[in-house]
């Protein structure tokens, strides 16, 4: 079995998107997610010497992250007794608004759907690890961050046709990877 090495200087580039999406799906708050990830990296640095190399670096970081998320749940729960119930639908100014505000989430979106979508997101990020650093960065900017072509070209000092070649290679690699792991479910 190959022994996995640990290199904290690459953690952010390699795993932050994965950790971020993993966390945001669970805590649903950007600020909080950022704090939790920050704590995870620090905890990782502290316990680096305990890393045996049996699991991949990412699996190991995720296991730390999971504990941090559970800690967070506990914190929230211990505050429950002090929860404040806000009922302000009686205010004249927004009378009539409450129906819309109170509307539930879509009925057709079950917990299973949400979980499946989250797994899918992580599967896509997983497949992105097969891309080169430049491909991954440009693909993410174009596809997930929705940055327009010109801005990316300027930033990387490439022509639009360079960009489309990079995107093409990235998409081909990703489609192949997902075909193995996901397309058959569709």
């Amino acid at each position: 079995m190959s022994i996995n090495k640990i290199d904290p200087t690459k953690w952010v580039d390699k795993y932050s998107d994965y950790l971020f999406n993993y966390t945001i799906a669970r805590v649903n708050d950007r600020e909080l997610a950022n704090d939790i990830i920050s704590e995870t990296f620090l905890a990782g640095l502290k316990s680096m010497k305990n890393f045996k190399g049996e699991a991949s670096e990412r699996t190991w970081l995720i296991s730390i992250l999971k504990r941090k998320i559970i800690d967070q749940y506990r914190k929230v729960n211990s505050n429950k007794g002090r929860a404040e119930v806000k009922i302000n639908y009686k205010e004249d100014s927004n009378e009539g608004d409450w129906l819309e505000e109170q509307a539930p989430d879509r009925f057709d979106k079950t917990a299973e759907d949400i979980m499946e979508n989250e797994e899918l997101g992580l599967a896509i990020l997983n497949c992105m690890e097969n891309l080169t650093k430049k491909q991954a960065k440009i693909f993410k900017m174009k596809t997930i961050d929705d940055v327009d072509t010109d801005t990316i070209c300027n930033e990387f000092n490439i022509t639009p046709s360079n960009l489309w070649v990079i995107i093409h290679r990235a998409r081909t690699t990703l489609a192949q990877c997902l075909e193995k792991n996901w397309f058959q479910n569709e």
Binding site: I24, I37, F41, I144, L174, W182
Partner: peptide, 25 residues
């Protein structure tokens, strides 16, 4: 692939956070 990416609702991790994490590490 396009549909899957849309469905997955992936969120971009903010660059400034990444920078901060890197510095902290």
């Amino acid at each position: 692939l396009t549909k899957l990416i849309e469905k997955s609702n992936l969120k971009p991790c903010p660059e400034e956070e990444k920078k901060m994490w890197k510095e902290t590490i």
